[in-house]
Amino acid sequence: MTTRIPEAEWRRLSTLKPVALERLCNRILEELMLVAQSEDTSHERYLSIFKLIQDRDKQIALAFDGLSRSNALFKLTEMRRENLLTDQEFAEFSDETQRIVSRML
């Protein structure tokens, strides 16, 4: 996606990025705790945690790594796909941006 979002929306997305990343990290940590507390063997739990971290690292990269104005719509779409933004936060973007993201979903 090479379409640039308006400057004001770029600033808003930049302020929402750490909030959304924190939400995703909390979700991942909760998943990890469930795996760590399972009744599987220690080795099975370790392997599950290792795979989960690898998978979630890809998820983090897709939504957050290399955020720039030229890929902001794609990153915003990923944040929305992962339910990392509230409806109220998403509503702060223009109708056009919301339409583009909705189509990309």
Rank of each mutant, 00 (worst) to 15 (best):
D87Q: 12
L34D: 14
S14Y: 05
T97I: 09
R45W: 03
G66T: 10
F93P: 01
Y46E: 00
E44H: 05
Q54F: 12
Q54I: 14
K75T: 11
A61F: 11
W10Q: 03
A20R: 04
S70G: 07
E92Q: 15
E44R: 07
E82R: 14
S38G: 07
E22M: 09
R56G: 05
T2M: 07
S14T: 15
M79Q: 11
D65H: 06
S94E: 02
R103A: 09
E39G: 09
E39A: 10
L21S: 06
I100F: 03
E22R: 15
W10M: 14
E31Q: 14
Q88P: 04
S38E: 03
E89D: 08
F74K: 10
F93L: 03
I100Q: 00
D65N: 10
W10E: 02
V35R: 02
L105R: 15
F64H: 04
P6T: 03
L21W: 01
R103Q: 13
L34G: 12
D87W: 05
E9N: 08
L21R: 10
M104W: 09
S102L: 10
L85K: 00
C25M: 14
A20I: 01
E92K: 04
A8N: 12
A20F: 02
Q88G: 12
N71L: 10
E31A: 04
P18V: 04
E92A: 11
E31G: 06
N71V: 13
S68Y: 09
S68V: 13
E31L: 07
L62T: 12
V101T: 01
R23I: 01
P18C: 06
F50S: 05
N83D: 14
D65F: 14
R45V: 03
L73V: 12
I5V: 13
